[in-house]
Design a protein around this nucleic acid. Structure first.
Lengths: 215, 215
DNA sequence: CTTTTCTAAATGAATGTTCATTCATTATTG
DNA sequence: CAATAATGAATGAACATTCATTTAGAAAAG
């Protein structure tokens, strides 16, 4: 076995990671969205991914690990895009609107994922929640930064509590997501368009219910 | 069997409904809150209630029915109190604040119930969700009425969409509830007091992030 | 080039555990 | 005593996970 074949052997051995792992994650998003995590069998995901039931365990430790991997994989993508998009905004107000936009758009971009994120990851399973927390707080941190930047540059009031408002903002957006998911699932018309909702929520957070304020 | 013993038989037969059913429901709230619905066994609830496992099925059809009964029993109480309290408020603004107050207070009044309502009933099980919907929409309806009343009497802007805002309001409050529950569960200090949170959220919804408006 | 060998990936039946629910039996009450 | 409530072991189903076996693909040999 000379050097040539040695390098060939290293380079061309089939990788375990890659296409199949992604296929399984994609399948999991859809299956979990349709049936809920606890009502989904590992075999359902395997079938949807076009692999055998036991194959799942070549890539993931167990069923919980599958859900966690879905979350980490997708949150990384979402956070990267979120941060990249917000860098294009000139001020906190624009960032706030874009934040709202990107959050609400997820339903149309990837309904199954929005479903899994909104519903499944409010689970009670303790260690799943811990995994959620890290990325979740990163997401909240983005919202909080917008708020604190707005306070710094004077466009947001200084008496607001960013730690609290970031939660209120996320909660409001999350609930609207759930609302749309319910409409889609039940084939009901949504109360309004996505664009209207973005504007309404932005106005709610900027002006509240009282007279419009100038930013 | 004369008339006397006939009436005795009717009046004095041990009722199946009553104390034991309530004990089981109370126990279910606690067990579901601690472990999550899917990680709780029916036997866990039975033990917590001080009855045998099979007894549960004398009162409830199955495990799902238990969760549904928890929800219906407790939501009836919450809605009744909510409506009664709101009648004491003089205007929509006062009602809004009281609504926020009562929602957020649930965490301190009954943490386990708040947990079950906030977490467990975002479940994916389809028919459980349908049961949730009826009472949930009634709850949302209360919020919506406050908003539409405020529009009518001129204290809230006429360009808001009450159907959307009621969702945003509920979502924001729900998320704060989840925040407190997480703090309690992990023995972390909460970011602020309940009273501060009520004021902050009220101000957020009334004035938004911009300059304070006069109602 | 074809065939053989070897190794890693993939398969899917088997395994073991869990638990919701039932129901024969016991206990309680009037 | 009779009727009803309560009990808890038994039952059957479900399914996450394991692992013996098969398959696939790369490399070596002829």
């Amino acid at each position: 076995m000379n050097e040539h074949s040695f390098r060939k052997g290293i380079v061309l051995v089939r990788p375990r990671e890659g296409d199949k792992r992604r296929r399984i994650i994609d399948a999991a998003v859809h299956v979990f969205s349709e049936r809920g995590f606890f009502n989904s069998r590992v075999n359902d995901v395997a079938e949807a991914a076009g692999v055998a039931g036991g194959t799942i365990y070549l890539y993931f430790k167990n069923k919980d690990d599958l859900l966690i991997s879905v979350f980490e994989d997708r949150m990384d993508t979402i956070l990267a895009m979120l941060k990249s998009e917000l860098r294009k905004e000139l001020n906190p107000s624009g960032q706030l609107k874009r934040f709202i936009e990107l959050h609400l758009e997820l339903v149309q971009r990837d309904q199954a994922l929005a479903d899994v994120l909104a519903v499944e990851l409010r689970q009670s399973a303790k260690f799943v929640r811990e995994y959620r927390a890290r990325k979740f707080y990163e997401y909240l941190g983005v919202a909080e930064d917008i708020l604190t930047d707005g306070i710094k540059d004077g466009s947001f009031r200084a008496d607001i509590d960013p730690k609290l408002y970031r939660r209120a903002l996320f909660g409001a957006l999350d609930e609207l997501t759930v609302m749309w998911l319910a409409c889609a699932r039940e084939d009901r018309p949504a109360p309004c368009s996505l664009n209207d909702a973005v504007n309404q929520v932005f106005n709610l957070f900027v002006s509240g219910l009282g007279p419009e304020a100038k930013l």
